[in-house]
Amino acid sequence: MSAIALSSLTFAGVTFADEARARESRAKALPLGSGVALTPGLGPDRAAAPLFFPPNLDEVLPDGGLPRGAVVEIASPRALGRATSLCLAACAAAQAEARLRSGDPATVGAWCAFIDPWSTLHAPAVEERGVDPSRLLVVRPGLEALARTAVRVAQSRAFTLIVIDLAGVPGAVLPRGAHPAGGLAGASSVRLERWVNVVRRLALALEHTDTSVLLSTDSLARRPLPLPVALRLEVEREVGGAWGVRVAKERHGRVGPKLALAGS
């Protein structure tokens, strides 16, 4: 399986003087062999968007991008390590890849899904980060239906990328108020020990597909067992806007120390 590379996102921060220069630069930066996507038809609005990722993030990942047909965990303390931006970047890359493959910038394709129990995803930010919101299905289940919904979405095979938010953000409360007894470890996170089996079911649903699932988790949440994911990334925001990224688990054992990456 190939990987979804995130390096295309570096284009989102570049302001090109003219379209010809833009095309030239894209052609130079396009790694054709790895199925890496960039965003054809990059408009001035998107070009003016801020830079969210260091250019060498893909190089940190063992396969040069997110693995397909697998479950990837992105853990950050209290989900404040820019995991959301990373997930949205992956969505944008997947959508851009579809446009690139079709050869027509007007093509819409590559549905992604974002399961957001806390209803905190902000639409202007989604657009700003290069994601086509009309191809991003947002599902807001209650916590009691979260696992069931996630598996159902994965089994549909209709999506290239599925993001499941298991952590929320500090201060967020569940819209419905009610949640099952024991469903929460703290004010706004899921009990991860129950997700060991759910992740296995997700992995089964993804077998022989090109769909990737990203689990955004709280790295500080209590967990008796690690989740059986194919790749676990630990991301943390450093003082001054820098990033710390560590491959904490990988199915072939390619783990490494935390790398500090420059960021905006």
Binding site: P50, T120, A125, R129, V173, P175
Partner: peptide, 13 residues
Amino acid sequence: PLSASEPARLLPE
């Protein structure tokens, strides 16, 4: 524009 960059997460309440 509210700012150069909008936050990705907005609390409903």
